[in-house]
Design a protein around this nucleic acid. Structure first.
Lengths: 126, 126
DNA sequence: TAAAGAACTAACAGAAATGTAAGTATGCGG
DNA sequence: CCGCATACTTACATTTCTGTTAGTTCTTTA
């Protein structure tokens, strides 16, 4: 949990309020948020699919990230009243509006990241 | 300091290596990196100017962020052999190539950030 | 009656990021 | 010789983020 007051939090709040780009990064900056958003750009997914796609995230963290994305209005969560449970995640219109930015971030990264870091992995998480 | 091995670090490394957008965010994601980059887009600045412009950063952190930006090739550091010291920071070509992304991040943030967060601050750190 | 399945939750632990306060270096003007 | 100015360092403290392990829920199917 977060403290209610600390220099750290105050700085973050001030920055997000006064600097648009800081705000944007704050929304998409969590460890697993971009991988999740990148997947949902291609369409709705069930929780279990996302989890299978990102085998190295711990469940707790994945849920946390999904909850934050939801709270920030970027994704929506649809619960089917079934057993076993079925929950679908998809981008909201706001989330969709991020797509061009995601695209740019991706291109810049692919072009400019040092080569040695790339070769050994065949985009298992891309 | 960072540990040499931890699930946390492994996940980060894998992600940055396999997902271009994660890599990009990793470079610009530090608390004060965007404010610094946004300023340097407008031209070279001395350390003292940057510091004055961002009155709430602690010196230690500001230096840390500058060092990382430098290590990642986004900014360059020019030391004049004078006393008292004079050090100028400016964007490298790689840093300049980020400008369109910064612009987009900024616009998206300005448009989509909730209003209540904005009013009280007159862009002191924008 | 018992295990299976999906989507979580809780309690705890460790790592990483950020911040605080006080110093260091160096040459110049007074 | 002293203090000023600029750009840092150092040692320490706190906050925040990420990860581990073991549950929980509640019907359905075997």
């Amino acid at each position: 949990m977060r403290k209610e007051s600390s220099t750290n939090l105050e700085n973050e709040t001030l920055l997000n309020a006064s600097c648009g780009m800081a705000y944007t990064i704050a929304l998409i900056g969590g460890r697993w948020k971009l991988p999740v958003l990148a997947r949902l750009v291609n369409g709705t997914m069930r929780y279990s699919q996302i989890k299978k796609d990102l085998p190295t995230v711990s469940e707790r963290i994945l849920i946390l990230q999904l909850r934050e994305l939801e709270k920030d209005g970027l994704i929506s969560r649809l619960v089917y009243p079934e057993v076993p449970p079925k929950v679908e995640y998809s981008l909201t219109p706001l989330g969709v509006s991020l797509a061009p930015i995601l695209q740019q971030l991706s291109e810049w990264g692919e072009q400019n990241r040092p080569v040695n870091a790339v070769e050994e992995h065949k985009n298992p998480l891309g």
